[in-house]
């Protein structure tokens, strides 16, 4: 591998941008394809497939047999609300490989006793969320049921290109939320991004079951949707 390719690869990884190294197994020829350039690459179909799954692998192509080393940023989950569901959701999400952060200004909820080993930020969303740099490999959920906390958090998430936005609450609760956020200037297109009621419909009752339904929906968005344009 050329040092220039390696340096560029490390720079892209550090910036949390997806990138693929294409190595021709017969000739040893190598090139770096940035996520944003995949649409114009001769191998775009296989590159897109690998980027979506996040898996490296060997492919037979018109260029010969190539090995694709896929570098996709680790997915993140930002949870607003250090609530009961979050106590199940956070460890489950970590099992799935997510880097988890919980934001809740209520220190009685956001305590290390309730969330051992989870990154907690006991601040209001307007303070806590901007430094997290929510990007398109981030899933965002709002679970407090409290509009004072959930609404500003959702506004922040919808201003980003995160791949999933979910909000807890019944259809009725969500309808009221949509009215409030509309009054605050959010567009119908923005509001349509919110998955609410949150999670796949599996008849979940207990907090851990609700966590399963949320993670199933997040997984579907991560793996099934076409890669969003950078």
């Amino acid at each position: 591998m050329k040092l220039a390719i390696l340096s560029a690869l490390n720079a892209e990884r550090a910036a949390r941008r997806p990138v693929v190294v294409v190595t021709n197994i017969e000739s040893g020829a190598q090139r770096l394809v940035l996520g944003k350039d995949i649409g114009g690459d001769p191998l775009r179909d296989v590159l897109e497939k690998h980027l979506r799954s996040g898996k490296s692998g060997t492919e037979e192509t018109p260029e010969g047999k190539v090995f694709l080393t896929v570098h996709v940023p680790a997915p993140r989950l930002v949870i607003t609300g250090a609530v009961h569901i979050s106590q199940a959701l956070a460890p489950m999400a970590r099992l799935l490989g997510y880097d988890v952060t919980i934001v809740d200004p209520r220190t009685a909820f956001a305590s290390a006793e309730r969330f051992p080993d989870i990154r907690l930020i006991a601040e209001w969303p307007d303070t806590a969320l901007p430094p997290l740099n929510i990007d398109r490999y981030t899933a965002f959920v709002a679970l407090t049921h409290d509009p004072k906390i959930d609404d500003p958090a959702l506004r922040h998430a919808l201003a980003s290109d995160c791949f999933y936005v979910g909000a807890l609450g019944s259809k009725k609760t969500h309808a009221r939320r949509v009215e409030r956020l509309k009054a605050q200037g959010l567009s119908d297109a923005d509001l349509a991004r919110i998955h609410a009621p949150i999670g796949l419909s599996i008849g979940a009752v207990s907090p851990p079951e609700i966590a399963v339904s949320i993670l199933a929906e997040i997984t579907a968005r991560l793996r099934q949707a076409p890669e969003p344009k950078p």
Binding site: L3, L6, R13, A14, L95
Partner: peptide, 24 residues
């Protein structure tokens, strides 16, 4: 940190080490 995250962090370290060692 999760096991998965550790593995990813390690991959970062490996590729960064490859670059740093060569540059040195």
């Amino acid at each position: 940190m999760t096991t998965e995250a550790n593995l990813l962090a390690r991959d970062d370290e490996i590729l960064k080490a490859a670059e740093d060692w060569r540059k040195a």
